[in-house]
């Protein structure tokens, strides 16, 4: 329990829609320990992205509690949430979400701008991270000049640049072919071996197989939680 990165208790999220309140997430309990590699699966509309956005402090829950590295996120001021997004969490999106007008090293180093890091160090770090995801020599390229798989690697480099404890990836391979997906997954595996906690959403069982634990969502609930090697999931 002491080294839980994510601890979620009875977490719920309802969206206001034209038809009234729509509960996308209902009473979810989940504990993710440091160093885990979790795949979240489930049919479309089961609340996976909703859950990830809550974990990433991009959205606020309607009910329940979320502790990120033992800090109650509900108690935090907006600037503290920004700081969590900046230093503790690295987010990887399905659509890569790079800034189209910035070259790759600046894209990778973007989070460092908001940590108040100096220019030279930012550039060094940016290139270092690009090298780590196998893109040395692309520092000055624009995102539009590289392939989707390469863009996703840049996005991962950006997520890594501030040495976060937790990487959240919402369908990171959703826009990639199976070969490129395998490359991205082995990159995640390497990162996980280095001790970074990873939570990843996917529809594909082969992708989920890279993770050590598979959590399945249905209609806003967790319906199964399988770990390899098998163990009883920690209670909230």
């Amino acid at each position: 329990m002491a080294d839980a990165v994510v601890r979620v208790c009875a977490l719920g999220k309802s969206y206001v829609t034209a038809a009234g309140l729509f509960p996308a997430l209902k009473e979810v309990d989940l504990v993710i320990d440091s160093g885990e590699f979790v795949a979240i699966m489930g049919p479309s509309g089961s609340g996976k992205s909703t859950f990830m956005n809550l974990l990433g402090c991009l959205d606020t829950p309607s009910s329940g509690a979320y502790f990120l590295v033992d800090r109650d996120v509900a108690q935090l001021a907006p600037d503290e949430l920004s700081s969590l997004r900046n230093r503790t969490i690295g987010f990887v999106f399905q659509g890569f979400n790079l800034l189209p007008r910035m070259n790759l090293e600046d894209n990778v180093a973007l989070p460092l701008v908001y940590s108040g890091i100096e220019r030279e160090i930012r550039h060094d770090k940016g290139r270092q991270m690009l090298a780590r995801v196998g893109l040395e020599g692309y520092a000055k390229s624009l995102p539009s000049r590289i392939s989707g798989g390469q863009q996703q690697r840049v996005a991962i480099a950006r997520a890594l640049v501030n040495s976060p404890q937790l990487i959240l990836a919402d369908e990171p391979t959703g826009n990639l072919d199976s070969h490129t997906s395998e490359e991205i997954m082995s990159l995640f595996e390497t990162l996980n071996q280095e001790g970074i906690t990873i939570v990843l959403v996917t529809h594909e069982p082969d992708i989920a197989a890279h993770a050590k634990r598979q959590v399945r969502f249905l209609d806003g609930h967790i319906v199964s939680d399988l770990a390899t090697p098998q163990r009883e999931p920690a209670q909230c």
């Binding site: 907006p78 920004s82 997004r85 900046n86 979400n97 790079l98 989070p111």
Partner: peptide, 14 residues
Amino acid sequence: TREIGIRLAVGARQ
């Protein structure tokens, strides 16, 4: 707007 979203997601404060 999207750029602003990305910046907020990587830790930009308001």
